[in-house]
């Protein structure tokens, strides 16, 4: 299974940096996600995760380090969490970590959004201040 590597862009499309590694099971999304067409961008990521769950079937560590994301990206984050939750429910091992900048001025808003993700998906998210 091939790895996914996408370099983030702060500019025309606000694309996050993506690293999905099939050898280590470590998947990372970081930066900014303000894309226009979120489905087009995230669909291959969903597909990769679902394939990993079936074909590789090893532990997944999912790290989010997103500074900005729009509401259509938040739907895609929910989809990722739902895939991981299902994997866990089916006996797989999946851990989610959310790294955030504790110094950020509007951090309460971000923590509230993460809490909403947990309520909505029932997937545990480990908060890591940095």
């Amino acid at each position: 299974m091939e790895n996914i590597q996408i370099a983030g862009k702060h500019g025309v499309n606000f694309i996050p940096t993506v690293n999905f590694n099939a050898d280590t099971g470590i998947c990372e999304i970081e930066g900014e996600s303000y894309l226009e067409d979120t489905i087009e961008f995230y669909s291959p990521l969903f597909k990769w995760l679902k394939e990993y769950c079936v074909e590789i079937n090893k532990p997944i560590t999912f790290n989010f380090r997103l500074r900005y994301f729009n509401t259509s990206s938040s739907k895609c984050i929910i989809d990722i969490l739902n895939i991981l939750k299902k994997y866990k429910d089916d006996g797989g091992t999946a851990e989610v970590y959310w790294y955030y900048d504790a110094e950020e001025e509007d951090i309460e808003d971000e923590l509230e959004e993460i809490e909403d993700f947990v309520i909505e998906t029932n997937m545990k998210i480990n908060l890591v201040p940095e």
Partner: peptide, 20 residues
């Protein structure tokens, strides 16, 4: 004003994408 700045930026993106 970083706090208001982040908020204005976020609101701008949502509303501008709605128009788009």
């Amino acid at each position: 004003s970083p706090k208001a700045g982040r908020k204005v930026f976020k609101i701008f993106i949502e509303l501008a994408q709605n128009i788009s």
